[in-house]
Write a protein that binds this DNA or RNA. Structure first.
Length: 356
DNA sequence: AAGAGCAACCGTCCACAAAA
DNA sequence: TTTTGTGGACGGTTGCTCTT
């Protein structure tokens, strides 16, 4: 009974505040002094209110960015704010009430290009596998920071894919000099016992031209699309096709770089023009963590990149373009984003019972 | 009004460590 | 020895802003 009374008292206070906000005509970007008795929604009130109003909301199978926008729109309505025509990239997104929102299906919370702000609130919204909001949790930056055990920043480079006139394009005529010096003229086609994830050897490393000839047959192939939040698995299907065309009888992927280690080949499937690269820049001269071949160390820029572009029509992924380049030449064909150049994110694992 | 540029945002997997 | 948890990679699309 006592708990129920308290619950009701908080909810009543929250409703009083949202009425005030609604009357005030303020937007989510207008500043409110923290703790303002008539306009500031304390975390407790915020959590209760959003939980009551958002739980059960059906989000369907929207693309994740669209999903996020739908949720923000709903939050504006619940809090008594007018819905902006677009959500500006302010830090935080809800400036007046000083909070950010994260709509999460997974427990891997990721904060990009920003430190955790200790006084900011973080509104974490749990979405079930059926795409229904099940719980809303409001925590301060302090609390989030305590869940961050490492402080490690994960980085990402990006480049732009610009389609040309050719359906298949061999960007680099030759391998890098370094790689060329270890390769033999008559490399064996992959034997049925070799794994695509094995370390490369001088005798089995195919020339970039041979790889090009073998892989260009993939253009025009299609396979079913697994859905808008299953990009990773979609890439796996292409990876399988690539292994098959190269002559490997078994497909294997250990999630490491590069995808087809045995050929020093990285495979990418693009359905949008932004190419995301990992921790390393393709033209990096850093040494790869694999055994040297004939005494020669392999560098990141020696790796070959197979970029496939696809269109998704009626639930099918159809490969329309193919590019093959060395890491060294990568940015000569695909311009690197000049803005931030390197993006980094902090990843915070949420405990399994975080939302309980 | 349309397009280009960009980075923000969210998703998934796997090796290894720790616990059972 | 098996199971569970954690850290840190990889994956890639879309909305916002600025320019034309």
């Amino acid at each position: 009974m006592r708990i129920e009374n308290q619950h009701n008292a908080i909810l009543e206070n929250a409703q009083r505040l949202t009425k005030n906000i609604s009357k005030s005509g303020l937007s989510i970007y207008d500043e409110i002094p923290i703790g303002d008795p008539d306009l500031w929604i304390p975390s407790q009130e915020l959590e209760l209110l959003l939980n009551e109003e958002l739980s059960g909301l059906e989000l369907g199978s929207l693309p994740i960015r669209t999903r996020s926008k739908v949720v923000k729109t709903k939050i504006c309505e619940v809090l008594g704010y007018p819905v902006p025509s677009s959500f500006k990239k302010t830090k935080p997104r809800f400036l007046g009430q000083n909070f950010d929102t994260y709509t999460q299906k997974s427990n891997n919370l990721q904060i990009w290009n920003e430190e955790i702000s200790s006084s900011r609130r973080y509104v974490l919204i749990r979405v079930s596998s059926e795409n229904i909001i099940t719980k809303v949790k409001v925590v301060t930056g302090d609390m989030l920071a305590s869940l961050d055990n490492t402080g490690t920043l994960t980085q990402k480079y990006q480049a732009r894919l610009i389609l040309g006139n050719e359906v298949s394009e061999l960007v680099s005529e030759n391998n890098t000099q370094n790689l060329d010096s270890v390769m033999v003229a008559e490399a064996k086609t992959p034997y049925y016992t070799t794994n695509p994830t094995d370390y490369p050897t001088a005798g089995t490393l195919l020339s970039i031209e041979t790889i090009f000839e073998k892989l260009k047959a993939i253009v025009g192939k299609s396979f079913p699309d697994l859905g808008s939040d299953q990009e990773r698995n979609r890439g796996a299907e292409l990876h399988r096709l690539v292994c098959q065309h190269l002559g490997y009888s078994n497909y294997k992927d250990d999630g490491r770089f590069p995808d087809v280690k045995h050929q020093l080949l990285e495979v990418k499937l693009q359905t949008s023009p932004t190419i995301d690269l990992g921790l390393f820049s393709p033209d990096s001269k850093d040494i790869l963590d694999i055994p040297a071949i004939n005494g020669r160390q392999i560098r990141h820029c020696d790796v070959r990149y197979a970029i496939f572009f696809a269109e998704i029509i009626e639930g099918m992924v159809r490969i329309t373009h193919f590019f093959l380049t060395t890491g060294e030449d990568f940015f000569k064909r695909f311009p690197q984003f000049q803005g931030k150049v390197l993006n980094s994110k902090l990843q915070i694992p949420l405990k399994k019972d975080f939302f309980d």
